[in-house]
């Protein structure tokens, strides 16, 4: 039995982490720290937390300003494990807490196991090219985990527990404004078919050809990171990979994408992967179900013709 903390940036994440904590803690106390209001804390308790602290977003300081209070409490209570969401603020909090507690921290930990010998977890290496299994020892070990890694159960409204908040320390940082993210135009995660373009496509106007093909297939259009981040031909939420979207469509058609590990990580769970890439030996072709080692323009033109028929 081990006491576990969960620190989450939203309610959904808190539910997932509570489920993970219940599985790992085997009946130990679960203390939740959730971004939001009292309702968020109550929700965490209904989903398995023994007690919950709500941490509202301060108006003029970053949310991460709760870090010193969290560290003081962790030093006093010494939870065996602290699970945090892989959202950006929580990653930041995790790393800072780990430094101040002089504790080990796994980023994006999977297959987490808690035993006397320490905490074992798998993490990725070289953008998903390899999986590293390691063990960490310490009074407290921190792990950030992805939202999709655990399913949460149904809420139990009859559960009760202490609800409180934490003090905020001076951060030395003033927040001068916040701008919500613009609504996403497509939900790639929900798309059954995705056609994706990479740097093999040489100019922005080529995207029209690809879009027309996608439309005829009933597919959404995505891209590799350079297309979104460096060329800015597509919005950032459209790029696939370890630092972008992770999707598992029925069909992923990669056009002119080399298939580096960081990109492949985002599609590895797709049902069928097809690659069009003139470099026969490239990683994308070698990790696809089917590939056509040819010029994309010619191939896409033929494909459009064939689908039209």
């Amino acid at each position: 039995m081990s006491d576990i903390w969960i620190i989450a940036e939203n309610t959904l994440w808190a539910r997932t982490l509570a489920a993970a904590a219940a599985a790992l803690g085997k009946g130990g106390k679960i203390t939740a720290f959730v971004h939001g209001d009292e309702a968020a804390a109550k929700d965490a308790i209904a989903h398995g937390a023994s007690e919950a602290f709500y941490l509202p977003l301060p108006a003029d300081a970053p949310w991460e300003a709760y870090t010193p209070a969290l560290v003081d409490k962790a030093k006093a209570e010494k939870p065996a494990l602290i699970l945090l969401s892989t959202s950006r603020r929580c990653r930041d909090v995790a790393a800072r807490m780990a430094a101040l507690l002089d504790a080990p921290c796994f980023s994006d930990g999977k297959n987490i196991a808690l035993a006397d010998g320490g905490v074992t977890a798998n993490t990725l290496l070289y953008g998903g090219l390899a999986v590293k299994t390691s063990v960490a020892k310490g009074a407290t070990v921190l792990v950030t985990i992805g939202a999709k890694d655990f399913d949460h159960g149904a809420p139990d409204a009859s559960r009760s527990g202490k609800i409180d908040t934490l003090p905020l320390s001076a951060a030395g940082v003033s927040v001068t404004g916040r701008k919500p993210r613009e609504a996403q135009s497509v939900d790639l995660g929900a798309a059954a078919k995705v056609v994706s373009v990479g740097r093999g496509v040489s100019k922005e106007s080529d995207l029209d050809t690809v879009r027309a093909l996608a439309k005829s297939m009933g597919a959404e259009v995505a891209c590799s990171r350079p297309i979104a981040e460096f060329f800015k031909w597509m919005p950032e939420e459209c790029y696939i990979g370890i630092s972008g979207q992770q999707i598992k469509p029925q069909l992923y058609l990669a056009i002119g994408i080399s298939g580096q590990a960081q990109h492949y990580f985002g599609i590895r769970d797709s049902k069928t992967i097809v690659s069009i890439n003139k470099d026969k030996e490239c990683l994308m072709n070698q990790q696809a179900d089917y590939y056509i080692p040819a010029d994309w323009e010619e191939t896409v033109a033929e494909l459009a013709k064939a689908i039209h028929k």
Binding site: S87, R88, R89, V173, S174, V175, T176, G177, P180
Partner: peptide, 9 residues
């Protein structure tokens, strides 16, 4: 950040 942009000084 996930929710949008935060400007700081």
């Amino acid at each position: 950040l996930e929710e949008g942009t935060e400007s700081v000084k």
